[in-house]
Design a protein around this nucleic acid. Structure first.
Lengths: 298, 298
DNA sequence: AATCTCGATATGTTTTAGGTATGGGGCGAA
DNA sequence: TTCGCCCCATACCTAAAACATATCGAGATT
């Protein structure tokens, strides 16, 4: 049995007339009669009473109709669902981000607007360090990741550059007035709080390189796994830290931020995907992150 | 799109492998690839990622699968439903009966056993006079009817003879000892309670003919629309009545039944259907009424 | 580097859907 | 009652398409 038989059967059942049903189907009456007969042979029983005025359903025909009536609609819905999924309007996307990337306003904004434009896409978020993000992309547990790209393994990944952020100094509040710029050399005697290089090499390398360019070798203090804990250690006066500028929006009790004078070191913010990524959901997400749409409603 | 495309798609989706799916489907791999490609062209998007190990669903493919997975099962169920309906195991049957026929034990027994054997057939019952039953059969509002056939219009109907019942006399209790036989001539001076001939001619004609054969012309008393009301009038001592023997099982306060001596008049009990009836439910019902199955369980 | 696996492509054959012409039965009008 | 119309079934033919066989090419594995 094929969908054709079902469509033809339903047409005859509705028209109660072979000739009219054939016209509606755009075929001749003889092939329609033939197909219905094939169907009846396969089901094993007549589905129509042929009467002089046309045809009417047998009891078996009524039972069959009740069973197959919805099928053409189901097929159509399945096609539409597939097309919507292909257009990235349904499905899912798993997005990762590093602790520091989450504070750049472009990251939450991209997520917010994407969810608004594609409300039927199931979006899940996960915070990891850079190494974990790259691993997640490669093993398929993540589809896209906001990260600091400079020092990660780019093999098999596609990186979309989103922003360059100057680093700023995070000091314990007692050190100097809030907001006042600072020269990096002033921190030559301070311990630097850093995340372990194995977890997130970019900020680690950028900090040491900046100090080197300022004429001194940074003193390494405590290490902390995430940006938030770095700031906690700074607040506890265990040392100082260089953080991306966007961290300024996240005020942290006991920590003051200070621009670095001179040409401040910069770290990049990028969005990474697998370079063989094909999902339309991911493509749409990348597009939104790279080229934010005009404005958010409301 | 045809069911073939859906079946092939589901096979590949399940096997994640074109060649294995083709083997399972009993066709070659090239035509399977071709059909899947046709389907993808019609849907407008790829449904599988071709990978060196076989194939895996795209997001669109997953959405499509969710929509069509149930369809082959639905088709199978529809076929089974049609076959069951053709076998008379589902559907409906509308059975009518006259007031007097309902008291013959074969009638309720046939209905009871039929319902037990075909519990999924919707059976509706309606009591009418003979004229109403015949009209119901002819206009399609009834499928079968238990009635007294002798004097009805048999045009377009098929009658199955079930029983010949002797008539017995129904008298007011005061008249004579319960159960004692009576000669019809003893009722020559009594008024006969009858249903109007226009509603049920058989018992009417049988009664008058019996009296005529016994040598007198029956005196017509009150008329009553149904057997039960006839007995009520008898109990009220407004006259006597001849009723089918099976009425004896329905004792009625104030009425005694008496066999008629000599060769008692008889009325037939029959089951009527349209003579162009084709429904399997009706055929099964007729079979059960004509040839009762062995015994009722329990 | 060689081989193996797996899907895609090319080509021919066979099945089958659909078109055209015609037959046959039943109903209604004359 | 007969003629004519309506409707589905049958017969036959054509054209499309499903499937088989043979082969290719890409990618992975050894």
């Amino acid at each position: 049995m094929e969908l054709r038989h079902i469509r033809y059967f339903l047409a005859v059942a509705e028209e109660r007339h072979f000739t009219r049903a054939a016209q509606r189907l755009g075929i001749g009456q003889p092939p329609l009669s033939h197909q219905i007969k094939d169907l009846e042979r396969e089901v094993g029983t007549p589905l129509f009473h042929r009467i002089p005025q046309g045809a009417e359903l047998t009891e078996a025909g009524r039972a069959f109709e009740a069973g197959v009536r919805q099928i053409p609609g189901l097929v159509g819905e399945a096609v539409v669902a597939a097309q919507r999924a292909a257009a990235g309007e349904t499905g899912r996307i798993r997005v990762g981000f590093t602790g520091s990337a989450a504070f750049n306003p472009r990251v939450p904004q991209a997520i917010r607007i994407y969810r608004r434009r594609f409300p039927d896409v199931e979006l899940s978020l996960a915070e990891h360090n850079s190494i974990g993000l790259v691993e997640g992309l490669k093993n398929g547990s993540l589809d896209a990741a906001f990260l600091r790209p400079d020092a990660v393994d780019k093999q098999g990944l596609r990186l979309f550059h989103l922003a360059d952020e100057p680093l700023i100094a995070a000091l314990a509040s007692a050190r100097m007035p809030h907001g006042e710029p600072i020269r990096l050399e002033q921190l030559a005697e301070d311990a630097f709080i850093l995340t372990p290089r194995a977890l997130g090499p970019t900020l680690f390398d950028a900090t040491l390189e900046a100090c080197r360019r300022a004429g001194f070798e940074a003193i390494l203090g405590q290490s902390a796994p995430q940006v938030a804990s770095v700031l906690a250690l700074v607040a506890a006066e265990l040392g100082v830290a260089l953080v991306p500028e966007s961290m300024r929006d996240a005020s942290f009790r006991g920590v003051t931020y200070h621009d670095l004078t001179g040409n401040a070191p910069k770290v990049a913010l990028a969005l990474a995907t697998r370079n063989d990524e094909q999902a339309a959901t991911v493509a749409a997400f990348v597009a939104e992150a790279r080229f934010p749409s005009e404005a958010e409603p409301g």
